[in-house]
Amino acid sequence: MSEDVSRVSPSRLATYATCPRKYEYDKEWSVESPEESRRYLDRGLAYHGAIEDTCAWATDQPESPTDDEIQTYAHEAIERRWDEHADRDEYASDAQFAYDRQVAIAGVDAYFAAAGLEHARNSVEQEGWLTCDRGDVHLRGRVDNIVRTDEGLQIIDYKGSLSGIVSGRTHNRIEAHHAGEEYHASILKSVFQAATYIEGAKATEHYEPGMDIEFTFYGVLYNVDRTPGHDGISVEVTGKSRDVGWIYEAHEDTIWSLIDDCYTGIVDGEFTPEPWEEIHENACGDCSYQGMCGDYIGAEVSLDD
């Protein structure tokens, strides 16, 4: 495969699927969103880094570490990563900063008190790049964790929550969006990731023909319970996983048709928002580029008239 092909990430595909004009501002022109805050980005970097550090450490040990050893290392890793990534200036108060720190630490502790133990012991790659080539479409994405299982491989993508991730309840929206019957761009990023990572994993040294490949989103901070007390607020965090490999298999042809449409639009530089009425109704309200977007301003002027 030639190195000069245009490789596109699942995130870029999803931005284009939401609105081609937003893609142009964000990815082509690199216009900084005026409302963008690094608070949640940095918190994500902290728990991603702590999980990566722990899995790498566990797999490098000459003997399989005990549960206590993994948990101790993970707790120290998230404290270290928090200090590295978190910026007090992004918070309104010291109390807010301390609360987010407590949530991040509790989330990593909870993960390595449950599924994270086996994930750490059986991880074969952390924060690795996967590439996927299908016809004229060339994708590339960074995978959080690849774990060896009894059946094959499990690819894990860590999120704060599972909001917006495709599920058994929403997967039929893929077909409705593709057919133009409804607008459901919000779930497409998760299925674009599934396509890229499942197919990309087949091109790695970890894959053997016949292996089962599962793709899992893990919400590290899925549920946060807050308990006020004399010493402040204490938190208890539980994570939750969602396997979506079966959804990819059920809608594979449709997903790749959507990917092909977005990829072609990106490579060809076609950024006209289509279908405009659906984009205007569903995507413009949360877009940070409203003030500079001629399409949005023109539509609002027309509505006012």
Score class of each variant (00 low, 15 high):
residue 3 E to Q: 11
residue 3 E to A: 13
residue 4 D to L: 14
residue 6 S to P: 02
residue 8 V to Y: 00
residue 8 V to H: 00
residue 10 P to T: 01
residue 11 S to H: 06
residue 18 T to A: 15
residue 19 C to H: 02
residue 22 K to H: 09
residue 22 K to S: 04
residue 27 K to M: 14
residue 28 E to Y: 08
residue 32 E to G: 10
residue 33 S to R: 15
residue 34 P to Q: 07
residue 39 R to S: 05
residue 40 Y to T: 15
residue 40 Y to Q: 14
residue 41 L to A: 13
residue 42 D to N: 15
residue 43 R to A: 12
residue 45 L to D: 07
residue 48 H to R: 11
residue 50 A to T: 06
residue 51 I to K: 03
residue 52 E to C: 06
residue 54 T to G: 12
residue 56 A to P: 04
residue 61 Q to N: 04
residue 61 Q to S: 05
residue 61 Q to M: 11
residue 62 P to D: 14
residue 62 P to K: 14
residue 62 P to A: 13
residue 66 T to F: 11
residue 67 D to V: 08
residue 67 D to T: 10
residue 69 E to H: 12
residue 71 Q to T: 10
residue 71 Q to M: 15
residue 71 Q to R: 15
residue 74 A to P: 11
residue 75 H to S: 15
residue 80 R to Y: 12
residue 84 E to I: 14
residue 87 D to H: 06
residue 89 D to W: 08
residue 89 D to C: 09
residue 91 Y to H: 12
residue 93 S to H: 11
residue 94 D to C: 08
residue 99 Y to P: 02
residue 103 V to T: 08
residue 105 I to S: 08
residue 110 A to L: 04
residue 111 Y to P: 04
residue 115 A to F: 04
residue 116 G to I: 02
residue 119 H to L: 03
residue 121 R to H: 09
residue 124 V to S: 05
residue 128 G to P: 02
residue 129 W to P: 00
residue 129 W to C: 04
residue 132 C to R: 06
residue 134 R to W: 10
residue 136 D to G: 09
residue 139 L to R: 01
residue 139 L to N: 00
residue 144 D to H: 08
residue 144 D to S: 12
residue 144 D to R: 04
residue 145 N to C: 14
residue 146 I to S: 05
residue 149 T to Q: 04
residue 151 E to C: 05
residue 153 L to H: 01
residue 156 I to P: 01
residue 157 D to C: 07
residue 161 S to K: 10
residue 162 L to D: 05
residue 169 R to Q: 12
residue 170 T to C: 09
residue 172 N to W: 02
residue 175 E to M: 11
residue 176 A to C: 09
residue 176 A to N: 11
residue 177 H to I: 09
residue 179 A to Y: 06
residue 180 G to P: 04
residue 182 E to H: 07
residue 182 E to W: 08
residue 182 E to Y: 09
residue 185 A to C: 07
residue 188 L to A: 08
residue 189 K to E: 10
residue 191 V to G: 01
residue 196 T to S: 10
residue 196 T to W: 00
residue 200 G to M: 03
residue 203 A to C: 07
residue 203 A to H: 09
residue 205 E to P: 01
residue 206 H to W: 15
residue 210 G to P: 06
residue 214 E to I: 00
residue 216 T to E: 14
residue 216 T to W: 09
residue 217 F to D: 02
residue 220 V to K: 00
residue 221 L to A: 01
residue 223 N to D: 15
residue 224 V to T: 13
residue 225 D to R: 11
residue 226 R to M: 11
residue 228 P to H: 06
residue 230 H to A: 15
residue 230 H to F: 12
residue 231 D to L: 12
residue 233 I to E: 09
residue 236 E to Y: 05
residue 238 T to N: 05
residue 239 G to V: 03
residue 240 K to T: 09
residue 242 R to Y: 08
residue 243 D to Q: 14
residue 245 G to H: 03
residue 249 E to N: 11
residue 255 I to C: 05
residue 257 S to L: 10
residue 259 I to C: 04
residue 259 I to H: 03
residue 261 D to Y: 00
residue 262 C to G: 07
residue 262 C to D: 13
residue 263 Y to C: 10
residue 265 G to F: 00
residue 266 I to H: 00
residue 268 D to Y: 02
residue 270 E to K: 11
residue 277 E to P: 04
residue 279 I to F: 00
residue 282 N to A: 14
residue 287 C to V: 12
residue 291 G to I: 03
residue 292 M to C: 05
residue 293 C to T: 04
residue 294 G to M: 01
residue 295 D to G: 01
residue 296 Y to W: 14
residue 297 I to H: 05
residue 301 V to E: 14
residue 303 L to N: 10
